[in-house]
């Protein structure tokens, strides 16, 4: 029977039930992730933002709220230009944060060889 309405899942973040394993891992390798105050400077200066919906502020917030998939999708628009590092008023090493995240997600598949990455000639 069609009542003309249906159920949609709650969009509320239940802070007791969310999975913060990624956040806790990042707290260790990139402790700056704690000090974001959501000013949005990073997103405002981001080269990729207008084209891909990338917003580092939102990525950090998503990780803090346990929404890993959302963070991962958004971060795929990052081009590692480093402008966000330059503008962050809290001096967050955003590059280290992003690289650490990529390394974490990559380690699902294989052990990430970071030294190899550095040697790549452009």
């Amino acid at each position: 029977m069609d009542f003309g309405f249906g159920f949609s899942p709650s969009s509320a973040a239940d802070l007791d039930k969310i999975d913060l394993s990624l956040y806790h891992r990042m707290e260790k390798v990139a402790p700056d992730i704690r000090t974001c105050m959501g000013c949005g400077s990073c997103s405002a200066t981001c080269t990729g933002a207008p084209f891909s919906g990338m917003s580092l502020r939102k990525v950090i917030l998503a990780i803090q709220r346990g929404k890993e998939r959302e963070a991962r999708e958004m971060l795929s628009g990052c081009m590692l230009c480093g402008k966000c590092t330059m503008v962050c008023p809290r001096g967050i090493n955003t590059r280290n944060l992003i690289i650490s995240l990529c390394r974490y997600w990559d380690s699902d598949k294989r052990e990430y060889d970071f030294s190899r990455e550095v040697e790549v000639k452009i």
Binding site: S10, S11, A12, A13, D14, L15, D16, G38, R57, K58, L61, A62, R65
Partner: peptide, 12 residues
Amino acid sequence: EDTLSGRPVRVQ
């Protein structure tokens, strides 16, 4: 409401 993400939050 977590106004930075625009979503409601709940916590015990």
